[in-house]
């Protein structure tokens, strides 16, 4: 029983981060019908930039409380990632609007690789440790343990997601985003600058990605040029699981995938008589992806999966 609760808690932490990243995939898909496979790299840049900023501050002898240093790092990483997302759309995707759907897909994969190469040039190929500025105190209850940091991660993810959903549902910008995703030509007729809406979508998604990247880095105490690939694939899976294009679906899909993966990792040893260990946990995400694509391609909350993916 303890291990069950423990795995649920672990799943919630990872799952809420997946959800935050999945929102970036699903927002872009909703508005342009495009899978931005470079989104994982935006997440990676968020982590890298934050670590660099914090390390520089610590190295310069600035002594501020850890959480404050992380906030300063975020305040630089978020706009940096927004700029990356904005630029990606402008130079890579916009010229391909109306092109056959394979073209932006290949471009997305090429972009993802290019961004990794840029990260190697800046930060090298090694793991970059997160500076030891955060408190990893553990809270224990009902036999399961969770760090205060992880509680903050879950709470912040939920807060951001509620904020985003409220923005999309209640504000004029959100209404214009939904209108554009449903009928861009008519949205233009209403005076919506569709290009600006698409830019805004990339910028917001990338900002969320930056925050997620920092959460990953604090949770695992490190970052790496390749980290965006796996977490990006997981989050993409979460978006498909929830119903790609559907914001609420991305949130549910992310949290659910985190929990599935975590329970899987916890029990895989027992299930296979010790043949497979918890290092096989990544397999679960892709098993889920395959099962969803076979049995419910529209995802949990999606109505239909457009064939344009």
């Amino acid at each position: 029983m303890d291990i069950f609760l423990q795995q649920i808690l672990n799943g919630l932490v990872v799952g809420s981060i997946y959800a935050l990243i999945a929102l970036g995939y699903t927002m872009v898909y909703g508005i342009m019908g495009l899978i931005n496979f470079a989104h994982g790299e935006v997440v990676m840049f968020g982590a890298m930039v934050t670590i660099t900023v914090i390390s520089a501050l610590v190295g310069a002898g600035v002594s501020l409380p850890g959480p404050l240093l992380v906030i300063i790092g975020l305040l630089i990483a978020i706009p940096a990632c927004m700029l990356i997302g904005f630029t990606i759309e402008r130079i890579a995707y916009r010229p391909l609007r109306g092109a056959p759907r394979l073209a932006p897909l290949i471009t997305a994969i090429g972009l993802s690789i290019s961004l990794q190469q840029v990260a190697i040039l800046i930060w090298g190929r090694n793991y970059i440790p997160f500076p030891p500025i955060l408190n990893h105190d553990v809270i224990t209850f009902l036999g399961a343990s969770i760090t205060k940091l992880q509680i903050v991660i879950i709470a912040l993810c939920l807060l951001i997601m509620v904020g985003l959903l409220t923005m999309v549902e209640k504000t004029k910008l959100g209404r214009a985003m939904r209108a554009t995703s449903q009928n861009p030509a008519v949205a233009g007729l209403m005076g919506v600058n569709v290009n600006s809406i698409i830019s805004a979508t990339f910028v917001i998604g990338s900002g969320l990605g930056a925050v997620a990247g920092v959460m990953v880095a604090t949770n695992y105490d490190q970052a790496h040029y390749y980290m965006g690939y796996m977490i990006g694939m997981k989050a993409f899976t979460a978006a498909v699981l929830g119903g790609i294009g559907n914001l609420g679906g991305a949130v549910c899909g992310g949290i659910l995938l985190g929990i599935i993966e975590s329970l899987g990792a916890g029990y895989i040893g027992d299930l296979t008589g010790g043949f497979l260990g918890s290092n096989y946990q990544d397999v679960f995400a892709f098993v889920v992806l395959i099962l969803v694509l076979i049995f419910r391609p529209s995802g949990l909350l999606g109505e239909k999966l457009a064939d344009r993916a």
Binding site: R175, R178, Q182, V186, A187
Partner: peptide, 11 residues
Amino acid sequence: RGIFPKLTVEE
């Protein structure tokens, strides 16, 4: 008509 099907009437 070009309505936005998944927006409410008021939206």
